[in-house]
Amino acid sequence: MHQFSIQPLFGSEGWSIAGYNIAFTNSTLWMAIAAVTLAFFVAGGMKRQLVPGRWQMAVESFTGFIDGMLAANVGPGGKKYVPYIFSLFMFILFANFLGLLPLGVIGLHAFTFTSHFSATGVLAVLSFAIVLIVGFAKHKLHFFSLFVPHGTPVIMIPLIFCVELISFLVRPFSLGLRLFVAMMAGHVLLEVLSSFVISSGNAGIGLFAIAGLPSFILMVGICALELLVAGIQAYVFALLTCVYLNDAENLH
């Protein structure tokens, strides 16, 4: 579990604003790395050539992917959310992938800040706040009709309204927790398997052959799975935000 612990860096544990601690931690460092890497990646695709090179093509395929996702889920009104969804998707994607880098080989330790709900929660609340702001700005109090699906019998409206309201209010939690749980579970799984490999190796060659080697082979497969999960979780976060934005933009 040490890989998830947050430590202040550069002697910044005393930094604070209005009594709140804002230490520059290892988590913060990896947020910065993700943001800067992402900015570098997208900047590399801004050559604006008529015939794109490989890098420009890669960046354009990502923006096209986000654009297509918004067009499919929100419709023509979704175009204006491309910057936000793109930032969200790519920031989470880069965070997930950077956290999986095998930097332990050269003595450094990657930190996956998306495995902290205090970080994913910020993004989830941000998405939820945008949905609320857009919804109420666009539909005023009519936005509450979102909680009463079409064709609900009048007698059922109070009950359905409560159920829908609860499911709506759960969204930021499910959004933030899903990402945090998926990233943490993967890292814990890899850690457990690698501890099998190391402790069985220390215990003797026989035990290593029985437990260590299969665990190691399994780890290789799980690593590939984790890369997949890193992409999928970023996609799910962005996709669900699109779906929620669709509710705010078009109601039902």
Binding site: I6, I17, Y20, T25, S27, A34, L38, F86, F113, V122
Partner: peptide, 27 residues
């Protein structure tokens, strides 16, 4: 508090510099 603060800072940086600054040009 540190997590929330820095998350807002760096996601804000990503959103305004990358999302608002670069993505529209790419698109």
């Amino acid at each position: 508090s540190s997590q929330i603060f820095w998350m807002l800072i760096f996601f804000g940086f990503t959103f305004f510099v990358v999302g608002r600054g670069m993505v529209p040009k790419v698109m």
